[in-house]
């Protein structure tokens, strides 16, 4: 295998994370917010892999697997909630659903 500068890997993971964070802050639709959270989770996982490869151990990949399962469970429940919310409120705008939009 060729040699890869690991710092750049971390940088990539960081940039992806920041992009996901920006997305969470900007988008209003709950579905998009969840999507951007997934981006952030993925970026964190990439960081783990990079770290694990740096030290040449399997721990990074193990962490990634855990993270993956957690993301799956979270997405399942989150999407169920989103469906429930939509069926009740007919609207997925987080601002409207939040504090000022109480019905």
């Amino acid at each position: 295998m060729a040699s890869v500068p690991f710092e750049y890997g971390l940088a990539v993971a960081g940039i992806l994370f920041i992009l996901g964070l920006a997305g969470v802050l900007v988008r209003r639709n709950l579905l998009f917010i969840l999507l951007c959270v997934e981006i952030m989770l993925n970026a964190a996982g990439l960081a783990f892999i990079v770290a694990g490869a740096r030290w040449g151990q399997a721990d990074g990949q193990v962490m990634f697997i855990f993270l993956l399962s957690m993301a799956a469970a979270e997405v399942a429940v989150g999407l169920a909630l989103i469906l429930l919310l939509y069926s009740r409120r007919k609207d997925l705008d987080s601002d409207a659903l939040g504090g000022s939009g109480r019905s």
Binding site: S3, V4, P5, F6, E7, Y8, A53, Q57, A58, D59
Partner: peptide, 24 residues
């Protein structure tokens, strides 16, 4: 933060699924 570390590339070692499974 990242730039304060060294940018020296290191060799990449292949980590097999077997190793992952043993760790898990």
């Amino acid at each position: 933060v990242v730039a304060s570390g060294s940018a020296a590339p290191l060799a990449v070692k292949e980590i097999t699924p077997r190793q992952v499974g043993m760790a898990l």
